[in-house]
C-alpha cells in the first residue's frame, strides 16, 4: 500500500515529533511552574524567549539553531568534542528543531492548566501532612493533566508540521531528517512527483484526523478522571 520511501518518511516524522514532545514536556512544566508561581528578575525575559519561536519566522529559528548548535557553535562544538554528537544533518537535530518550534505552544497550554489549579486544594493537602513535592505529584500534576494532554497534542501537531526550522538547521536528508513535510516539498520540486506528493498529503491528512480524534477521546477520559465531567 505504502512505498518503502513513504514508510520511512512517515516513521521518521512520528519518531521525531513524539520524541520532541516527550523531551520538552518536563522542561515545559518546569518553565510554566516558574512563570506562574514565582516573581523573579528576568521573568519577562524568560517568557519572551520561550515565545520567540511563535513570533519569529521558522527559518530564523533554524538559523539561530545553526549558530548555537552547529559544529562551530558554542554548544554544538562542545557536544561534538565531548560526546562526538553532531546535531546538524542528523535525526537528533531534527528532534531539537521540532522541540524548539513546538515548545511555546506546550508551555502556554501547561501554564493555563497550572493557573486553573485551585491553590486551596494544595494548601489542604499540606495541612494533611504532604510535603511540597508530594503535593505536586499527588495533587497539582493530576489536576493539570487535561492541560498537559492538550499541550502535548498541540505540540505534537506543531512538531510534525515544522518545515522552515528543520530544513535550515538539519537539511533534507532522506531517512535521517526528511520528515513528511520535507518529503512533500522535495516531491513537488521533482518533475513527476505530483502523484507521490498527493499520496503523502493524504497520509498527513489521515494522521491529523487520527490525532484530533485521539486528543478528543483523551481529553474526555482525563476530564472524567479529575471529576469535571
Amino acid at each position: 500500500m505504502l512505498t518503502p520511501t513513504e514508510i520511512i518518511a512517515l516513521r521518521l516524522s512520528l519518531q521525531v515529533a513524539l520524541t520532541a514532545v516527550a523531551l520538552s514536556l518536563p522542561l515545559a512544566v518546569l518553565i510554566a511552574w516558574l512563570l506562574t508561581r514565582f516573581q523573579f528578575a528576568g521573568r519577562s525575559l524568560l517568557d519572551a524567549v520561550v515565545h520567540l519561536p511563535l513570533v519569529l519566522p521558522p527559518v530564523v529559528i533554524g538559523y539561530f539553531l545553526l549558530v548555537v548548535f552547529g559544529t562551530k557553535g558554542p554548544i554544538g562544538a562542545w557536544l561534538y568534542e565531548t560526546f562526538g554528537v553532531r546535531l546538524i544533518f542528523s535525526r537528533s537535530g531534527a528532534i531539537l528543531a521540532a522541540a524548539v518550534m513546538s515548545f511555546p505552544l506546550m508551555v502556554r497550554a501547561v501554564r493555563l492548566a497550572l493557573e486553573a489549579v485551585d491553590r486551596g486544594l494544595e494548601a489542604a493537602a499540606r495541612t494533611l501532612g504532604a510535603t511540597r513535592p508530594d503535593v505536586f505529584f499527588s495533587i497539582t500534576l493530576p489536576l493539570m493533566l487535561p492541560g498537559i494532554v492538550s499541550g502535548c497534542i498541540i505540540a505534537f501537531a506543531a512538531a510534525l508540521g515544522d518545515f522552515g526550522a528543520t530544513i535550515t538547521f538539519v537539511g533534507n536528508v532522506e531517512g535521517e531528517t526528511q520528515t513528511l513535510s520535507l518529503a512533500i516539498y522535495s516531491l513537488t520540486q521533482a518533475p513527476d512527483g505530483d502523484a507521490a506528493a498527493l499520496r503523502l498529503v493524504l497520509i498527513s491528512l489521515a494522521l491529523a484526523l487520527v490525532a484530533l480524534y485521539l486528543s478528543d477521546w483523551l481529553a474526555r477520559r482525563v476530564g472524567r478522571y479529575i471529576g469535571r465531567a
Binding site: D118, G120, L121, A123, A124, A125, R126, T127, L128, G129, A130, T131, D134, I139, P142, L143, Y225, I226, G227, R228
Partner: peptide, 19 residues
C-alpha cells in the same frame, strides 16, 4: 512547615480532591 504541624484543617469550602 505546615505539613509538620500535625494539625487538621476543615475549611469553609470542603476542598476535596476532585480526582
Amino acid at each position: 512547615p505546615v505539613e509538620q504541624r500535625e494539625l487538621g484543617v476543615v475549611f469553609q469550602d470542603p476542598r476535596l480532591f476532585p480526582h
